[in-house]
Design a protein around this nucleic acid. Structure first.
Length: 473
RNA sequence: GUGCCUAUGGUGUAACGGUUAGCACAUCAGUUUGUGGUACUGAUAGCGAGGGUUCGACUCCCUCUAGGCACCCCA
């Protein structure tokens, strides 16, 4: 299974290369050409079959809730022009400054693997003239994002986000509905999350506030850590969610952003809160909550894991807010908008910690045991008939002995096993074995599908799989 | 990106500066003929990579790679 590199190394002996060695990059050196296997790129991972149950649960839940709130799915490209993100997320942010996968593509364009999708959604809104559609335009997405950060549990370089974006309406009810949707998703997943909320106002009142905040911290500059000194200069709003003990104490008597909101911002925020109370979504005001992306304004919120499940360090499962200026930044007509994103890995992880482990797929209902090639041929046709009848069939083509096949059937926990040997092929029959009782019945192979279906329905009325294709999330 | 911790078959683990690196689970094959769940037998498979110290390294040191924790930051 693991791809052995040895095999590669044995290929045509490398011709004697002229003196100058090829540049020793990581491919040559770091991973070691004599090494045996290819390792995953750091921060990248496989989502294995055994994890798919949880992933499906999360994906399905998100999709069904999105649909029930009449959000439309949008799929956005993974690669975008890199300036899209520089313009929107903010040049000074870490995401853009040091975490973005930026490179020049073969046509000499600077492109980036998307670190998030809100900018793309806004771009799509503009480039497809969605402003001409009935507003709000509500869209959701789910897909991989890329940030070159140092990996940690619940933090990967390729990670999945689901997001909800609502464009075109400035009403506070939009903010509230988005929060409700996020809250609903966690609720139906059985996760206890806390909604933290704050308002960072418009860029104007925020600017005024920041002047004040910076002035305040300047007085205590000597007490600040190096990190915080840097923050104070680079992104003073970030002082609010500093983890430094000293800073947090200083914050107690620091100016509060809520006091600096203009009347409209204040009113907007109050209304959002009122709506939340109306639908009984409990929230927690957090005057220190800010967001890491530059485009936010007014309402900002975050969903954090309530319960202490194990030692889950990454407790923020999602977050978002209003970004009224974003569309304009990208050259569109001024358009209010609001949205949020969820970190799928973190949600899946929280479910895992809670012991939620749904099966990746429903187990097969019947097992097909075959003896000999003639039987295999017949079997291959039977599979299709069973599939059309909505009966899932498993087999173990790797095994020839009946014993081994029954063993496999048993392990899979099927209810019925069909046995087809030389004799049956000649007679046009097939054996149906009930795995529980061991009772066997020889039946006409032409009628087997109908009989099996009847048996399955009869015994406890097993739900046959629906034939509607499962839509990928 | 910074600091710290870790790295043994597919998985979980044991041991030792020097014999064939042990165990469990899993996998595969058998325990006479075309019939499962238990039991028994056997097989496959490992010291993350590279360098150094040493007579000798899986074991000590360094580098790299990967994982984890905290920070930066963020979902």
């Amino acid at each position: 299974m693991p791809f052995k590199r040895k095999a590669l190394a044995k290929e045509p002996a490398p011709k004697k290369v002229l003196k100058e060695e090829p540049k020793k990059d990581l491919d040559e050196e770091g991973e070691g050409k004599s090494g045996k296997t290819f390792e995953l790129l750091r921060g990248f991972r496989d989502i294995l079959p055994e994890d798919q149950g949880r992933w499906n649960l999360v994906r399905d839940t998100i999709r069904s809730i999105a649909e029930s709130y009449s959000f439309d799915r949008i799929d956005l490209p993974i690669l975008e022009r890199s300036d899209l993100f520089q313009r929107t997320i903010g040049k000074g942010t870490d995401i853009v400054e040091k975490e973005m996968y930026v490179f020049t593509d073969p046509s000499n364009r600077s492109v980036a693997l998307r670190p998030e999708a809100t900018a793309s959604a806004a771009r799509a809104y503009i480039s497809h003239g969605m402003i001409e559609r009935p507003q709000p335009v509500k869209m959701w997405y789910l897909g991989p994002m890329f940030r070159h950060d140092r990996p940690q549990a619940g933090r990967y370089r390729q990670f999945y986000q689901a997001g909800f974006e609502s464009f075109g309406v400035a009403e506070p009810i939009v903010d509230a509905q988005l929060i409700v949707i996020g809250h609903q998703i966690f609720k139906s997943l059985g996760l206890d999350v806390k909604v933290e909320i704050n308002s960072i106002g418009t860029s104007e009142c925020r600017a005024a506030y920041l002047t004040e905040l910076v002035a305040y911290f300047r007085q205590h500059r000597n007490k600040l850590s190096e990190d915080d000194k840097r923050r104070l200069q680079k992104n003073p709003l970030r002082m609010l969610d500093s983890k430094e003990e000293v800073t947090r104490e200083l914050l107690q008597s620091a100016p509060q952003i809520l006091d600096w909101l203009d009347e409209t911002s204040k009113e907007h925020f109050m209304k959002v809160l009122e709506f939340l109370e109306e639908v009984e979504v409990s929230y927690q005001l957090n005057p220190y909550l800010v967001r890491g992306l530059d485009y936010y304004s007014h309402t900002v919120f975050e969903f954090t894991l309530q319960e202490d499940v194990g030692d889950l360090s990454q407790s923020a499962l999602g977050g978002g807010g209003r970004y009224d200026g974003l569309v304009e930044i990208l050259g569109g007509r001024p358009t209010p908008a609001c949205g949020f994103a969820l970190g799928i890995e973190r949600i899946v992880r929280a479910l895992e910690a809670k012991g939620v482990n749904p099966p990746e797929r429903p187990p097969a209902l019947v097992f097909f045991a075959q003896l000999g090639d003639a039987a295999r041929r017949v079997g291959l046709k039977l599979f299709e008939e069973f599939r059309q009848a909505g009966v899932s069939v498993a087999e173990a083509f790797g095994k020839n002995a009946l014993k081994g096949q029954l063993e496999a059937a048993n392990r899979m926990g099927v209810r019925l096993t069909l046995i087809l040997g030389q004799k049956e092929v000649l007679d046009g029959t097939i054996i149906i074995r009930d795995m529980e009782s061991g009772a066997q019945e020889i039946v006409d192979v032409k009628k087997v599908v109908g009989l099996v279906k009847k048996k399955l329905l009869h015994e406890e009325g097993v739900a046959l799989q629906s034939q509607t294709p499962v839509v990928e999330a």
